[in-house]
Write a protein that binds this DNA or RNA. Sequence first.
DNA 1: TAAGATTGATATATCAATCTTC
DNA 2: GAAGATTGATATATCAATCTTA
Lengths: 159, 159
Amino acid sequence: VAEPRWLDEREARIWHAWLAMNRDLQVAMDKQLAEFGLSAAEYAVLVPLSERPDRTLRAGELSRVLGWGRSRLSHQLRRMEGRGLVHRCDLETDGRATMVRITDKACELLAAAAPGHVEAVRRYLIDVVTPAEARAILGLAERVQLAVRSGVPGCAEGG
Amino acid sequence: VAEPRWLDEREARIWHAWLAMNRDLQVAMDKQLAEFGLSAAEYAVLVPLSERPDRTLRAGELSRVLGWGRSRLSHQLRRMEGRGLVHRCDLETDGRATMVRITDKACELLAAAAPGHVEAVRRYLIDVVTPAEARAILGLAERVQLAVRSGVPGCAEGG
DNA sequence: TAAGATTGATATATCAATCTTC
DNA sequence: GAAGATTGATATATCAATCTTA
């Protein structure tokens, strides 16, 4: 294997700025939700449910929307059912499926937390980016995700 | 409380692109390290230790460098000591302090993993950003962290 | 057999409480 | 009491194994 191309000072600065920015942003968003007694995972689960007319989704659908594995969602729903945030019941049409419904209590909690959440998104990101940076984010996101999905770094075939 | 300013379509697209980009990038980086049997947390702990001439750091120093709480580091070190990646011993000068040393085994593991890690950073981010986007990241990171550190969103004092 | 979901084991992350030493 | 560190409890995240139904 050839000598790896280590990061130069500017490249390292970009990488570390990136990591620090995301770490801080995530911590801040978590804290904001915590003021309403909600975790980021709970909020993520509740939002798609609340947007349904019947406040209900199949577990598999929810898993797909969130981009979570079934196992992860199942564990999360168990804890949330214990906290009275969601309710699970069987689907008559298909004995394998599980229906998930957001409770009234969780709906109220979500309605209370959502304005502050959006406010935080604005304060920490949207109000802070210049139009040029916003364009950079949108363009970069596409290319990063393309690189991530196409490239397995363990087997560097071309480089 | 006034009606919250919900995100318009473009703003929501920016926020979701941001979240998806970081989620995918983090998953990809974790997978890369997993090829060498290392987690992101383990890698983060080992790097500062390996950069020391004596391969040693005070736990408190390590905690500061990583930006981790003492408790988090302590739990992590316990698991890593169990795996034979680090060794802990008391400091003679100060009976309260703990010295952490990276093991030979972990040094070799790190040396094996580091090139692929840097390669992944390049492939997924550095090689993908345009110079303008790189400038955007550096500038944005400063402002985002400023906003995060100054603003408590729960009490919107200014409007 | 495969799809949908749950379970158990393990690792990670945070908080409060504790323990030792200064 | 305060600093440095550990511990226990709980929540989160991933993987493999399992269970039920189609």
